[in-house]
Write a protein that binds this DNA or RNA. Structure first.
Lengths: 337, 337
DNA sequence: AATTGGCACTGTGGACCACGGAGTGCCAGG
DNA sequence: CCTGGCACTCCGTGGTCCACAGTGCCAATT
């Protein structure tokens, strides 16, 4: 059905359209690409490509534009991830080193990615479910209140105030703290519910209420309610493109945390670059955008995802290269921390 | 110079233009507002208002549009802050109660404000410089690393990893921790440098290096480098308006933390509503926007600011009412925490 | 002195039209 | 199977025209 030359034509159409943002015609293609055939021949190929749904014309007597299906084929078979230039790699390195804590790493990463791709960048904090407990701290706040601080191995620090505890005895807090740490230190958060289940039984009955309250907050905040934290950057880049969908719909979608999570989450093949093109996205407002995402992590351990949102008409090889490179560097930085 | 009626005309021009987004003519004014005079008279007044720079016409034979100066007069003398409806107040209350920690309070607040005003909302975290230390925690992370966690009375939790400490002795950490807490508990962060100055001298010489390292990180992260934390919401609302300046410039400005801080910070009169209109903003890209901001805090103690960014053509009374109301509620919620 | 109706004037924006150009589909010949 | 030629189609541009909304000015009125 699709011989080599037709694929070459499709590739050329995608590349030219991405560059110029204008429907590309057979003559222009013949001039700018060494296809070795005449415009008429290219026209015939284009008819075939259009019949198969890879390209389309906005109207008669206009050039062709790739469809979502066309981009999909381009990404899957006609292009390869473009490695970053040495200068770009140096930029990444100098940009990410020197961050003093997790917040700063994440903030810098998302800005960097936005800058490299000229698109909207999304970075997810290391997922709590894949982190393990480094330390649990309990701090009496005076009165019936206690602050619980959980520090994970990935640098995330989650805190929560626990109220209504009645009288708080210093020594009971000390006991509970060391008990908690003995039970949870080094455990994955997913395992915490299991290992703390029988703790209250070990507590002096007098302070058992406090222990139960603390544990329930711990479980609720870290396991059940574990909200993924996500940051965005580069929304200004959206304004530069003119979208089929209204810009407002896109911005609205990007403000919904749930949408972002699903956007990154729906990777077919974890630990690989994932590309979702146009209507492949579940969200109405994002029908005219594509999402390139990747996992990052330390060693084989995947921690969370990063990604980029841009127009379907984007430079896929370059964007994929940037996302992959940034994901790797973040992993390295986190490992070094 | 400006008699009562001319002011009434200006007010009417502002109100109509805000409603319709179209230059308003003398005839329409006479119809829609009970000015009690004929269009011709209004025209004469308009000429006077234009000579004084309060309104302008986009071109001959078009209606008039308020200038920045016109909006300024409107805000200062021709309008009053519009109280929220009962329904809106209930919405605020139900929206803000039930937040479990500071992050959640801030996140909900910024969304709420964006929703109420249909504009871009900005909320600053309680400023560190105006908070006091509740507790300092030191957690050995294994090896030469230590995590410092500072908890403030406003609920902010700042953490930092300190590396390269050599051997860490449990008991030395315990000593340092209690020493730190004795010295700093209850102090404003601004005072911390003063009260910890002579601490190293009190430390066992063997562990003095560690104490010095910890203190320098403490000072650096909390006092010198104290970055203000700021969150945004409602950027999608920008897309609904058509701006003189390019949307891109505005979005870019709003992504710069420094810009946001100055935007909120430049209040003439603290603890009051501040309005900066159009070119009154220092930033190039924000020449066609106005900023309404207010302090929030507990009691008389101002903690930080919230604000709203929208087109100069905005509903000032309504926006000011919403900002003021939300600022008050946030203060109450924080006080109750 | 202030207000008003009348009137001539003026840009804007929409409708209409004509035209050049880019690109196509098809066909017949190599 | 490829190619050059050709007729066709539609878009975008630029020009003209007109209606409209709104103005500024003036003379008359209160």
């Amino acid at each position: 059905m699709l011989d080599e030359r037709k694929l070459a034509v499709l590739r050329a159409v995608v590349e030219d359209f991405v560059n110029t943002n204008e429907p590309v015609g057979s003559k222009a293609l013949a001039e700018r690409h060494p296809l070795g055939v005449s415009p008429a021949t290219i026209r015939n190929d284009m008819v075939a490509l259009e019949e198969d749904g890879y390209i389309t014309q906005p109207h008669t007597s206009a050039g062709r534009v790739p469809t979502d299906k066309g981009y999909r084929l381009f990404v899957d078979r006609l292009s390869s991830v473009k490695p970053l230039s040495a200068a770009e790699r140096r930029a990444i390195e100098s940009f990410l080193t020197g961050a003093v804590d997790l917040d700063e790493i994440v903030t810098r990463t998302v800005r960097l990615l936005a800058q490299l791709t000229h698109q909207v960048a999304i970075v997810q904090y290391p997922s709590l479910t894949r982190s393990s407990v480094q330390h649990v701290e309990l701090v009496p706040l005076g009165g019936p209140r206690l602050m619980m601080v959980v520090i994970t191995d990935t640098g995330r620090v989650e805190q929560r105030v626990i109220d209504g505890l009645g009288d708080i005895s210093e020594s009971a807090v000390d006991d509970l703290r060391s008990m908690l740490n003995r039970a949870t230190a080094g455990r994955f958060l997913n395992d915490v519910p299991r290992v703390v289940g029988d703790l209250p039984a070990q507590v002096d009955p007098e302070h058992r209420d406090m222990a139960v309250a603390v544990l329930s907050v711990l479980l609720e905040s870290l396991v059940e309610r574990h909200e993924e934290k996500i940051v965005l950057a580069g929304t200004a880049n959206l304004a530069a493109v003119d979208f089929a969908a209204s810009l407002r719909d896109i911005l609205e979608a990007l403000e919904e945390n749930m949408v972002l999570i699903r956007l990154l989450g729906e990777a077919k093949d974890p630990s690989m670059l994932t590309v979702r093109i146009g209507a492949e996205n579940f969200h109405e407002g994002l029908r005219s955008t594509s999402v390139v995402s990747a996992d990052y992590g330390v060693g084989n351990q995947s921690l969370a995802k990063i990604g980029v949102v841009g127009p379907t008409r984007m430079d896929y090889p370059g964007t994929m290269g940037a996302v992959r490179a940034v994901a790797r560097y973040v992993g390295q930085i986190l490992a070094g921390q």
